[in-house]
Amino acid sequence: MCLLCHVSVARAADNAASLHDRYESSVQQLNHSPFRRRLYLESIESASMLKGDIYSVLDHPFAVVDGALHNGPEAPANWCDVLILHLNIKYCHAAIGGNGTILEVNLGKKVEQELVDTYRLQFHYRAIPSPTTEYFGVELRADNGPLSTKDYLIVLEAIPVEGNRTFLHLTYSYSYGLAGRIAMRTYLATIGSGKVGFTAIGKVASTGDSKYVGGIRGLIERNTMRYYLAIDAYLSALSSPPGKQLERRLTNWFNATEQYPRQLHEIERPAYMQMKFKEYQRQLAAG
């Protein structure tokens, strides 16, 4: 008897019930979202940890989302096609070994880089066992990252909802030590100064415009949103012919980020498309 398996299944049942409850209690919040899509975002900043959570209704059938990112044989490789859309992801390769499925992911800057100048994380990919076919959960977990960051975690869970759509919960979090705290403060004091997240914390007195959270909490909100938009961009491109899907994914992601220029604009479209085409070809060649 596999005790851990039973524990995992029981946890998945609890997660499924919690996600249903969250959806039922969030309908009004989702319907009146400021994001121009049925979505809301929450974030937490502590002395040593950052966490972002997004809850959203996707206009994709649950079976499509499940097959692409959880239950299908190509799901781990599909995650690489999702992650590479993010500006800071420079490479991703899924490999099955003695320790299960590993996603080798390189983090870098928002410009073209050689892989030797980036940092490689190893994400352990795990599909959470579930007692029902109407819930799935996937975890990507990496123990260590650059500059004393650690405990990287990406969790995606989903359930079907009315209208042949999918209610999704995405979590992105990591912990950091002194070196990581110093690096983030340096970034926020230089090229990251003036950058904000999505949580409104008041009004600008002179203009009446919304004032948004900044600093480290703004950082986690921006990246959580980028990963969410990558998931949606990938799923939206699945209906295109195979030879057109990469261009469609890139276009979808860039267009979606440009809906939030105050938070997410970093690069012009031609530069993004050129950089990502090169990175994707490098990913294919190395894989």
Rank of each mutant, 00 (worst) to 15 (best):
N106W: 05
L107D: 00
G108N: 04
K110T: 11
V111N: 09
V111R: 15
E112V: 01
L115N: 01
L115V: 00
V116Y: 00
V116T: 01
F123C: 01
Y125M: 02
R126W: 01
I128D: 07
I128G: 01
P129Y: 07
P129R: 09
P131V: 04
T133L: 05
T133S: 11
T133P: 03
T133K: 14
E134A: 06
E134L: 10
E134N: 13
E134F: 08
F136W: 07
F136G: 04
V138Y: 05
L140V: 14
L140D: 10
R141F: 14
A142T: 09
A142Y: 10
D143L: 14
N144I: 09
N144Y: 14
G145W: 08
T149M: 10
T149W: 10
D151F: 13
Y152P: 04
I154N: 12
L156Y: 10
E157C: 05
P160M: 05
P160D: 03
N164F: 00
T166V: 08
L170P: 03
L170K: 10
S173V: 07
S175N: 14
Y176C: 03
G177R: 15
G177T: 07
L178V: 12
R181Y: 08
R185P: 00
T186K: 05
T186M: 08
Y187Q: 01
Y187V: 01
L188K: 03
L188R: 06
T190Y: 10
S193P: 00
S193Y: 15
A200M: 05
I201E: 11
I201S: 06
G202C: 11
G202A: 10
K203I: 11
V204K: 14
S206A: 15
G208Y: 09
G208L: 12
S210A: 10
Y212K: 07
Y212C: 02
Y212M: 05
V213N: 01
L219A: 04
E221R: 13
E221A: 13
R222T: 14
N223I: 12
M225Y: 12
M225H: 12
R226F: 08
Y227M: 13
A230I: 04
A230W: 02
D232G: 02
D232Q: 13
L235C: 05
A237H: 05
L238A: 03
L238I: 10
S240A: 14
Q245R: 15
E247G: 06
E247P: 00
E247Y: 02
